[in-house]
């Protein structure tokens, strides 16, 4: 399978194939999660293709390589369905300090959720 030339996350487009470590296509890129100003790649929202839709979040360290037409993951296909789903941020009624702070992954999942609705 020809994935094209290696590229930066900055030029990765939605619709590119997502390929697991065994080489099988497991979905398509739906959104790229990044902070371009800080040049930080956070991960991807992928459309899993298992039914009509189905979104999962792939953290940056689970991305092995990015090519023009495909993203190769470090994980096997069997782990894709266990990837976390984008989730809405809970309503915040009060701030109780450090204990309430989100983990890095939770923050990414909430940003991924916002990306899904970016146009709405």
């Amino acid at each position: 399978m020809d994935h094209g030339a290696p590229i930066s996350y900055l030029t990765l487009s939605p619709g590119a194939d997502v390929v697991c470590s065994e080489g099988d296509v497991v979905g398509k890129v739906a959104h790229v999660l990044a902070d371009a100003d800080e040049d930080v790649f956070d991960g991807l929202v992928i459309d899993c293709h298992r039914g009509p839709g189905g979104a999962r979040f792939v953290d940056a360290d689970q991305v092995d390589a990015i090519y023009e037409r495909a993203v190769v993951l470090t994980i096997p296909g069997s782990q894709v369905e266990h990837l976390p789903k984008p989730t809405p941020a809970p309503a915040v009624l009060e701030n109780h300090g450090v204990e309430d702070s989100e983990s890095g992954l939770q923050r990414k999942l909430h940003r991924a959720w916002d990306l899904i609705s970016g146009n709405y």
Partner: peptide, 15 residues
């Protein structure tokens, strides 16, 4: 959006 994430709608239907 939850329905899309849970695989009940595709991206076009969501939009």
């Amino acid at each position: 959006k939850r329905a899309y994430v849970d695989d009940l709608l595709d991206a076009h239907e969501l939009g």
